[in-house]
Amino acid sequence: MSNEKITITVNGKRYDKEVEPRRLLSDFIRDDLRLTGTHVGCEHGVCGSCTVLMNGKSVRSCLTFAVMADGAEIMTIEGLGTAENMHPLQKGFWEKHGLQCGFCTPGMLMTAVELLKEKPRPSVDEIREALSGNLCRCTGYQTIVESIQRGAEIMQGGK
């Protein structure tokens, strides 16, 4: 049960670490790298709170072993924008009240990043399809859809 050496780039920063094979990517990101913006809600792949981008694609970090991300580029919520310089999607969520407790929000945002990369101007139905695997207990989802539309608008140069 020996440890594995892995190299993972997270938010543009390279990390060389030794991990137990069973270490979940979610724990690696949160505890080993201390990037606690990625949240663990159910730890069995249903809620989507822990969604991060792996080589540009959304994945459940609780359903991925850190060793499986060896050599990969990971992007977490911390890589998106800062409070001083928010990503358009973060601005959209702020303006349209796309969050309340904020626990599911990192997963929502990372899912939305992937969506907008493929569909810069998604329809309501496309957004609802993209978010179908992310549970939110606070908002009723409607303002999350509006937030993503608003984020898309800002990305397209809208004010």
């Binding site: 792996m54 959304s58 459940r60 899912t111 992937e114 695997g133 992310n134």
Partner: peptide, 9 residues
Amino acid sequence: IAHRAVRNR
């Protein structure tokens, strides 16, 4: 079948 993030992996 499932959801995007699950289908990605």
